[in-house]
Computed example of a mutant assay.
Amino acid sequence: MIESTTEVVVRYNETDKMGIVHHSQYVIYFELARTHFIQESGIPYRKVEEEGLMMPVLGVEAHYHSPAFYDDTLIVKTTIAAYDSIRMKFHYKIYRKTDQKLLADGSSEHCWTDLSLRPVSIRRKNPELHHLIVEACR
């Protein structure tokens, strides 16, 4: 299984009055890490979109363990948790770089669709992309 690592430095505007990263930012960190994972896996996402495929979000789940603060460098580790040629689920773990403490973990589930938002099977629509995803899952 491929695991991607993405670094994110917490910016001031991502924190609340207490200097703690606002909970909504973690979903943004998940998305940054997901797109980075796709790039590292050799899946040309821009090309996929040009072929009329999209991957809207079906759901997001986040669990918070310990706070992140302004100027922390975060490490987001991303893997594919499930794939069935139509749906994909990504799993994320966010650590603080300095002490490797687990701060949050979660997942996002997506569905491959055409431009009309009708679900499509990547196995049928784009066998090459399907193969890349299957390889990323091993």
Results as ranks from 00 to 15, higher is better:
V9S: 02
V10P: 00
V10I: 12
V10Y: 00
N13W: 14
N13E: 12
M18A: 11
I20Q: 02
I20E: 04
V21H: 01
H22Q: 14
S24Q: 10
S24W: 11
Q25C: 07
Q25F: 09
Y26P: 01
V27N: 15
V27H: 03
F30H: 04
F30P: 01
E31V: 04
L32M: 15
L32N: 09
A33E: 00
R34I: 08
T35C: 09
H36Y: 14
F37E: 00
I38L: 13
Q39N: 15
S41C: 08
I43M: 08
I43V: 11
Y45T: 07
Y45F: 13
V48T: 12
V48S: 03
V48D: 07
E49A: 15
E49T: 05
E50C: 15
E50W: 09
E51V: 03
E51T: 10
E51F: 06
G52K: 14
L53P: 06
M54E: 04
P56Y: 04
V57L: 13
V57S: 08
G59V: 06
G59T: 06
G59W: 14
G59S: 12
V60F: 00
V60M: 05
V60T: 12
V60C: 05
E61G: 13
E61L: 07
H63I: 12
H63K: 10
Y64R: 14
Y64F: 15
H65V: 09
S66F: 07
A68M: 04
F69V: 06
Y70L: 09
Y70I: 05
D72E: 12
T73Y: 08
L74G: 02
L74M: 07
L74D: 00
I75R: 05
I75E: 08
I75F: 09
I75N: 05
V76C: 07
V76K: 01
K77F: 07
T78A: 02
T79N: 07
T79G: 00
I80M: 06
I80G: 03
I80K: 03
A81N: 09
Y83G: 05
Y83I: 01
R87D: 00
K89V: 04
F90C: 01
F90S: 01
F90V: 01
H91G: 13
Y92F: 11
K93T: 04
K93S: 12
K93L: 13
Y95I: 01
D99H: 12
D99Q: 10
Q100N: 15
K101L: 02
K101D: 00
K101P: 01
L102V: 09
A104R: 02
A104F: 02
A104L: 05
D105C: 08
